[in-house]
């Protein structure tokens, strides 16, 4: 209670206070409520972090140590050999040149897929938001409903079409497939964003005589950088993590990283090398994890925009 005297230079004011509670209610840092809240959160955090930890420690141990010990114990002798092997010489059922081939395949698939799908969807979302034509909403509704249809229903007709086009089994075929299936969510994302921009801007540009493409490139594009970043995050992680399309639409030479990882780890031949497996798993998860940790809030925004409104 003496606090009032020392804290305030204004003694006349301090006189006005009487005995009894004043200022902040004193709180114990270790109140029951705090213990419960932080305890529960910490417990959950451990559950979520444990697999990452296990992956890292396993990938740094030698096989003898793994056979001897406990998956949770830190490595006694750190070795990077599993990483080197996972990258360059781990065996799938077919060949033994490691994950590197899958990594580069994934890059070759992902980069054009991301660019093509975002280019198409952003222009499309812009057309839907600002240049509505009769029937546009109908096609858009079909597109959004289509996002809920299990891929298995549409896979085989696509196989036939790609075969007819001579694209089945090639990287180009897979790029096309990613662009098609990325379309609903991306179009929705862009449409909602462009709708949220002030309409007066678009009207003013039209009165100034700008056309469809001019308005898109000169006005909409420069204003929409954040949403393009969100779309990129969404697509980079989504395409990198894809397994089903990779396994259906490519051949072993062009398998993306996820498919190759699965083949390495679940290959029935030879002795199981758990450390190499975990190194390979971490390598495959590295790209999306880096995107996630770097992008932070934008990632959350992306999934929130995609999920809540989808």
């Amino acid at each position: 209670m003496d606090k009032s005297l020392t804290a305030m230079p204004n003694l006349a004011g301090a006189d006005r206070l009487s005995a009894g509670p004043q200022g902040k209610r004193p709180r114990k840092v270790l109140s029951g409520r705090n213990i419960m809240v932080y305890g529960a959160l910490t417990f959950a955090a451990i559950y979520y972090l444990l697999p990452l930890y296990v992956m890292v420690v396993t990938s740094l141990k030698g096989m003898p140590e793994i056979r001897m010990g406990n998956i949770f114990s830190p490595p006694m002798e750190i070795t990077f050999e599993p990483w080197a092997k996972a990258w360059a010489s781990a065996c799938t059922g077919l060949n033994c040149d490691g994950l590197s081939r899958g990594f580069w395949n994934s890059v070759k698939i992902m980069v054009p897929s991301v660019i093509v799908s975002i280019a198409i969807a952003s222009v499309n979302g812009y057309a839907l938001a600002n240049w509505k034509f009769k029937g546009a909403e109908l096609f858009f509704t079909i597109l959004i409903i289509g996002a809920f249809i299990p891929y298995q229903v549409m896979i085989y007709p696509i196989v036939i079409v790609l075969r007819e086009l001579g694209l089945y089994g090639t990287i180009y075929g897979l790029i096309l497939v990613h662009s098609i299936f990325g379309m609903p969510i991306l179009t929705l994302l862009f449409r909602n964003y462009f709708v949220s921009l002030p309409e007066e801007l678009f009207k003013a540009a039209r009165i100034d005589g700008a056309g469809f493409w001019q308005i898109y490139f000169r006005i909409m594009l420069p204003m929409s950088l954040p949403i393009f970043v969100v779309a990129m995050i969404l697509q980079v992680t989504g395409i990198w993590n894809d397994f089903l399309f990779g396994v259906v639409f490519t051949r072993p030479e062009t398998y993306p990283m996820t498919v190759q990882l699965n083949n390495i780890v679940n290959s029935v031949q030879g002795v199981k090398e758990y450390n190499v497996n975990m190194a390979a798993t971490l390598l495959t998860g590295a790209i999306p994890l880096i995107v996630y940790f770097v992008s932070g809030r934008l990632f959350v925004r992306g999934i929130a925009a995609g999920a809540v409104k989808g």
Binding site: A44, Y48, T258, L261, G285, Y292
Partner: peptide
């Protein structure tokens, strides 16, 4: 809590 969501089902 959210980082596993960035990982693929395969991983």
């Amino acid at each position: 809590f959210l980082y596993p969501f960035a990982l693929s089902f395969i991983v």
